[in-house]
Simulated scan of single mutants.
Amino acid sequence: MNFLKGLYRNRRGAARLAVAVAAASALAACDSSDGTGDGAGSEGGPRVVAASTWEAAFARAAGARDVDVIVPPGINHPPDYDPKPSDIAKVAGADFVLYAPFEGFAPKLKSAVGSKAEMVELQLDNSPNIVRKEVTRLGQEFGTAGQASKWLTSYDAAYATEKRNATAAYAKAGKPPVVAQTFVGWAADLLGADPVRFYGPQPPTAPQVADLASWKPGLILENSAMPRTDALSSIKAARVTVVNFPDQKMDLKSVYRTNTTALTAALTD
């Protein structure tokens, strides 16, 4: 009789344990993401490998938190970077690999990408319409659309502040004619300026310099990521080196603050 009672107690305990395990499993299933909501894949969203800090800043703006970068911050011309084997190795475990078509090493990333990774080509430009489009797209790709939308709200406010400051400085300086390198037109827009001429991406030739000079620019916007040239040094105008790539903090909004400070300083000298 005691043996039967013991067996009954053991069976009842096992049943209770089975119920507890089933409940825990159900809670875990409800708590996990199916890949369609914000933060899908893992805590902080998917694992992203970005070709440079520019793509990385777009990824973080879209809600990604696990972001690694191929080109180290501070490289003068990131598109010409020659990745080391250790750089390429980062790609193997990524969920998404972000790159731009002008980056010469992009084919190496494509050849090393793992079977689960998705290659995403970005249109890299700091113009607000491009930023909004690409951040929204990445938020949908990553499953972090809510975080991307929240960031864009803060971005609109930050951009409005920097544009207000830059346009005020430009107006106070008398709105001098602007010449801009072809990849920094967004900085002219930040000023509220319509460039009289663009140049590049190659260094301007002597006839092109003569044409630029004929417009009598008061402000020249150069590109920090392009090989420096003194071709325009003969033109007497204020010169600002516009920064496209974010620093190691991968903060896109800081790019506008940095350039507004430089533009304002040049216009008030």
Rank of each mutant, 00 (worst) to 15 (best):
L27M: 07
A29R: 05
D31E: 10
D31S: 12
D31Q: 07
S32W: 14
S33P: 11
T36R: 09
T36M: 05
G37D: 10
G37S: 13
D38C: 05
D38N: 11
A40V: 01
A40W: 06
A40F: 06
G41C: 05
E43C: 15
G44P: 15
G44N: 05
G44Y: 01
G45L: 02
G45S: 05
V48K: 06
V48Q: 09
V49K: 08
A50F: 15
A51C: 14
A51N: 10
S52V: 03
W54N: 02
W54T: 02
E55K: 14
E55S: 15
A57K: 13
A59N: 04
R60Q: 12
R60T: 00
A62G: 11
A62C: 10
R65C: 10
D66K: 07
D66I: 05
V67W: 07
V67N: 02
D68N: 09
V69D: 03
V69I: 08
V71K: 00
V71Y: 02
P72Y: 03
P73R: 00
P73V: 00
I75R: 13
I75L: 10
N76C: 00
D80Q: 13
D80M: 10
Y81L: 14
Y81T: 08
Y81Q: 12
K84V: 12
P85F: 07
S86W: 04
I88Y: 06
I88T: 08
I88R: 10
A89W: 11
A89I: 14
V91I: 11
A92P: 00
A92W: 04
G93C: 08
A94T: 13
A94V: 13
A94R: 15
D95W: 01
D95G: 01
F96N: 04
V97A: 12
L98Q: 08
P101C: 05
P101R: 15
F102G: 03
E103S: 01
E103D: 07
G104D: 02
P107H: 07
P107E: 13
P107D: 09
P107M: 12
P107Y: 08
K108Q: 09
K108I: 00
K108F: 15
L109W: 04
K110P: 02
S111D: 10
V113M: 13
S115A: 06
S115V: 00
K116G: 04
A117F: 00
E118H: 13
M119R: 09
E121S: 14
E121M: 14
L122P: 06
L122C: 11
L124R: 05
D125N: 15
S127L: 05
